[in-house]
Amino acid sequence: MRNLTAALSGALFGTGLLVSGMTDTVKVQGWLDVFGDWDATLAFVMGGAMIPMAIAWRIAARREVSALGTPFPPKNRSGVDPKLVTGSVIFGAGWALAGLCPGPALASAGFGGVNGAIFLIAMLAAMVAAPKASRLLDRMTAPKGSTMDIRALTPTYAVSPQIDPEDLPAIKVAGYTTVIDNRPDGEIPPHLHTPVMEEAAKALGLTFVANPVIGGAMTPENVAIQRAAIEASGGPVFAYCASGNRSSVVWALAHAGLKPADELIGIPARFGYQLEHLRPALEAAKG
């Protein structure tokens, strides 16, 4: 059923793109060509599309779940971050050069010829490479001499495999203000135990929160502590465990109902953390 309704929506979307003229790059480039022969069609397309969608959001606001029982995606409250702006500028540049954005590029696959196919391949390949490029950017902007692997899930929350007390200054330089320790002491040698880390962190003026998560036996309390620590932090939060997996899981559960489940699973997946098994819990939660 879900697949059928998704296909119906895709079919209508494709038809709309074709009818509106958005699969014609001349119209799209004409809209962006303010200094040339300006074409206003795109404004009518966008305006027309927003009418039914605005109504749909109003209906969604009055219901708990969609017709097929999926909770509606909550509004992303993480605000504007550099990646949103940088990504949009990069996208806008490519959009102007060819006159195609992802929807019309796909919708015109059947009649776009060889160059249309080349565009699609380049676009999809870049989509696969995007998380890596994004991480490379993070690493390049990280302080030098650091061997750490800071995996920023969001601009305000990063996870990492086990760190050393000597890594803490670099974490501070990177702008983090709170460090959460999600690894129980029983797993690691004494020089990495919580009291040692806590002392080193506090000496640097970092807020330190111990929230040991036992692998496979996470408690609701773990989630509550993580959430409280994230909310209480004045700046970005850095959480670590053995691999960063547990720190990702508590983050996802702490944001259940506050961010779309697709995002809570999709973002950690880009760093290799598989949270698909949490989907039922993440989708069931209410904000």
Binding site: S9, G16, L18, F44, V45, G47, I55, S66, T70
Partner: peptide, 28 residues
């Protein structure tokens, strides 16, 4: 045609949201 096609695009997005419960974003 732009307005008509736009209404179809918006209806597709509205349907996908209200029935499947997801945001219709081509790139996503």
């Amino acid at each position: 045609y732009g307005l008509l096609g736009g209404l179809m695009i918006g209806s597709a997005a509205a349907f996908y949201l209200l029935v499947n419960g997801r945001i219709m974003g081509a790139s996503g």
